[in-house]
């Protein structure tokens, strides 16, 4: 556990010295801020006409996960591949540290970075809460934020796993992004067309596990299993890639 934390802390600190990480954080916060602002403006101007609708933060969290599809590859591309390219992996692999601790530590570092952004965006629901009477539905807000964290977890797990297979950042980013686009959009298409196996495709489609349930305030065991399995799969792939490297 301690080793995982040491690796995570180094990666977390590294993000705060990295231009790419700042650009990602800035873009995410800016886009979400704009969406939030527009929503708030719409609400304050239409509150009297459409008194039935209460604003919530689902548009913010919805946009957040959409941005993650694009930005997580940029945040994970260097995680292991760069250690590989620079040879520093040799230092880590000869330190008294188990391979899975290294991989999980890398994942946790990325997770904590995005978690920091998530915490910052909690400002939006807090502000909305002050505008509406009698206040917003916090259980729904927190569920959709849980959804964001689950999507983050799965994306980062897969991203770290792919990063461990390469020694080139750009290759890593490209493969990671392609996989995310597939999981987020493409895998859903056959579900509507294929006569058989539609359920499998539907289950693999990541966006439905978020938009249809968590972002609406619904927690289902199937969704939790889905996101946590993908996380575990990515971390397993990463650990295996390191082990293969050792035995080769």
């Amino acid at each position: 556990m301690r080793n995982i934390w040491i690796i995570a802390k180094k990666e977390y600190d590294h993000y705060f010295a990295s231009l790419i990480a700042y650009a990602v954080a800035f873009t995410i916060l800016l886009v979400l801020g704009i969406i939030f602002g527009v929503n708030l403006w719409y609400y304050t101007n239409n509150a009297f006409q459409s008194s039935g609708t209460i604003p919530d933060s689902s548009s913010v969290t919805g946009a957040f996960v959409f941005l993650l599809v694009f930005f997580v590859p940029a945040l994970t591309m260097h995680l292991v591949s760069d250690e590989n390219r620079l040879g520093t992996l040799e230092l880590l692999l000869t330190a008294p540290l188990r391979d899975h601790e290294l991989i999980v530590g890398k994942w946790l570092g990325g997770f904590l970075f995005i978690f920091t952004l998530v915490v910052i965006t909690l400002v939006y629901p807090v502000v909305i809460d002050n505008f509406v009477q009698p206040g917003i539905d916090w259980s729904m807000v927190l569920t959709s934020y849980l959804g964001v964290l689950l999507v983050t977890s799965a994306f980062l797990g897969l991203g770290v796993g792919i990063s461990a297979m390469f020694s080139n950042q750009i290759a890593t980013m490209f493969v990671t992004f392609t996989l995310f686009v597939f999981l987020w959009w493409l895998v859903g298409f056959p579900a509507n067309l294929a006569p058989v196996g539609a359920d499998v495709f539907r289950y693999l489609d990541m966006s439905t596990h978020f938009y249809d349930t968590l972002n609406q305030g619904v927690i289902q065991l199937g969704d939790l299993v889905y996101f946590l399995s993908l996380t575990a799969l990515g971390l397993f792939i990463g650990t295996t890639a390191i082990e293969i490297r050792r035995w080769r």
């Binding site: 080793n3 040491i6 180094k10 040879g87 520093t88 230092l91 000869t94 330190a95 540290l97």
Partner: peptide
Amino acid sequence: VGYMPETVPLYRDMSVYDFLKFMADLRH
């Protein structure tokens, strides 16, 4: 064991102290 690999790989973007602190932490 203390090991210095052939090409002496180091984290270029870390300070000397931070790097050694990281390595010391890994060794508890």
